[in-house]
Design a protein around this nucleic acid. Structure first.
Length: 117
RNA sequence: UAAAGCAGCCGGAUAAUCGCGCAGAAAUGUGAGGAAAGUCCGUGCAUUCAAGGACAGGCCGCCGGAGAAACUCCGGACGACGUGAGUCGGUGGAAAGGACCACAGAAAUGUCGAAUUUUGGCUAGUGCGCCGCGUGAGUGCCAUAAGGCACGAACCCAGCACGACCAGGUGAGGAAAACCACGCUUUUCCGAACCGCCAAUAAUUCGAGGCGUUAAACUUAACGCCGAGACUGCCGAUGGAUUUUAUAUCACAGGCGAUGGUGCAACGGUGAGUUAAGAGCUUCACCAGUGGUAUCGAGAGGUAUCAGCUAGGCAACCCCCGGUCGAAUGCAAGAUUAAAUCGAAGGUUAUAAAGGCUGUCCGCCCACUUCGGAAAAAUCGCUAGAGUUUGCGGGUAACCGCAUUCCCAGACAGAUGAUUAUCUAGAAACAGAACACGGCUUAUGAACUGCUUUAUAAA
RNA sequence: GCGGAAGUAAUUCAGUGGUAGAAUGCAACCUUCCCAAGGUUGACGUCGCGGGUUCGAGUCCCGUCUUCCGCU
């Protein structure tokens, strides 16, 4: 789990990020990007796995934790590239990403983050 | 030894690195389950409403006990299944009444028709088909890893038209819509009441049919009664006919419904007696049910005996009986603080309308009431409880009592994770708290333990 | 978290405890010089799954799985 200042909270913040309609897809994971930053506050991140992806909470939590852990490691290495210019990011997991190992998830997240212009 | 039955145990461990929630000033402590699941029952807790009355309605259903309660648990009774250990059971009433019992069968619980009373009903259907980010076989194109895009029969379907026939018609009054027309207008819908028709049930009456008795005298009358009942079935006592006068024959009257057959089920069953053959025979014996009595048991019920009553199934269809339930909404309940507040409709004299009294009606209440939209922050509720561990006592048990010990998640885009190595078993199943608790149901990996039964072998 | 509905042929839908149906699609044949349309015939079903009640269950009762919808 990330520290609180990096977390995207609040329903309206999620709505605003989706409304920008700037998204990339890779390996069953979608990345939604919000608007550009104006001040120095840290980039906030949300992780979403819908109930439609799988019925069981354990499988959904597993995917969310893997995505979160992968992002945390990249943040720690300071290897996030241009993505830190934006105010908010949302990673959405789909049924294709379900059941994949940490290595595969990590590769997808890395490509997504470094592909941001 | 093998195969079964019942019960129990466990729900990964260790190390390194990088992380998260909560508490705390910090050090540090602590952090998913046996089912946290399904939401199938039952509680607590919270808010709103409840003058009163009537009627509906839900749930439960062998007996005793436990429990806050329960579609809960324990012990027992009875029934069913199993060689057995055991397992399963929504298990009151069919003699208050109604419905249903296909096919087969003579017949499925009782003749047929009409009238009156009562109750219910009085259009089915066919064709064309709006809308729709509704469902969508199939087809085409692009990509060929997944897939994406387009077309799309048919169905659902607002509505429109036609409308057979087994009977519908008149219509006070009310509502909505339309207008060069504002009307004693037109159209559509609802509809009290009346007339008529159809169906059903019960009661009564009448008729038809059948049987018996009596009378007349040869097909009628009077009185009484009425569940049906196949077969070239069985019988031929009684009455009759025939002529061969008999121990005969008769698709004659009549007697019988045993037997055969149908079916899930045929009016308790089996055997004897009686008889012309038989039976439903106030005949006898045994078995089953039912009722009475005695006795054992706390009771469900068991046993014995007498009566001689015999009653189809279905209540997991309606119903009856007994018991029980204030209703609604669920912690996103709700409380406090702060901030913000737009539109539409009806009423504002009274009535009406709308709203409330949270199943319905009567009855009562109200003067600001209803509906829709937008925006949503913090704190509390929130976890010490029908609690956990161990021991003793009571009880067959469920469970209860006393003592002792411990404090053991509390989030709000939502914590308990990732990687590597070793081990059990080269790969650990099912599965993640969201107010709490008691049950039920379902999912689930590997290894192990105890008791019991049956079979086989040996001593 | 709470509440409601559905599951029947390849598809969309009927179905009063008693032999599972309709339309479209599919297959074969007829018709035509050929195709379409039309006509005739046929295959299509564990009534989501598992128990129970009943002589008999798609229908009644219980459990379970899946899908969809609504409230917040």
């Amino acid at each position: 789990m990330l520290p609180k200042q990096y977390r995207l909270k609040n329903r309206s913040a999620f709505k605003a990020t989706y409304r920008v309609k700037n998204s990339f897809h890779k390996g069953g994971i979608s990345l939604f990007i919000g608007i550009l930053k104006k001040d120095d506050s840290p980039t906030k991140v949300g992780f979403v796995v819908s109930k439609k992806v799988h019925k069981r909470a354990v499988k959904r939590n597993r995917l969310k934790r893997l995505m979160r852990e992968s992002y945390r490691l990249l943040l720690k290495e300071n290897n996030l590239g241009n993505s830190q210019k934006y105010l908010s990011l949302i990673f959405v997991g789909t049924d294709k990403a379900l059941g994949k190992s940490f290595k595969e998830i990590n590769a997808s997240i890395k490509k997504l983050v470094q592909g941001v212009q």
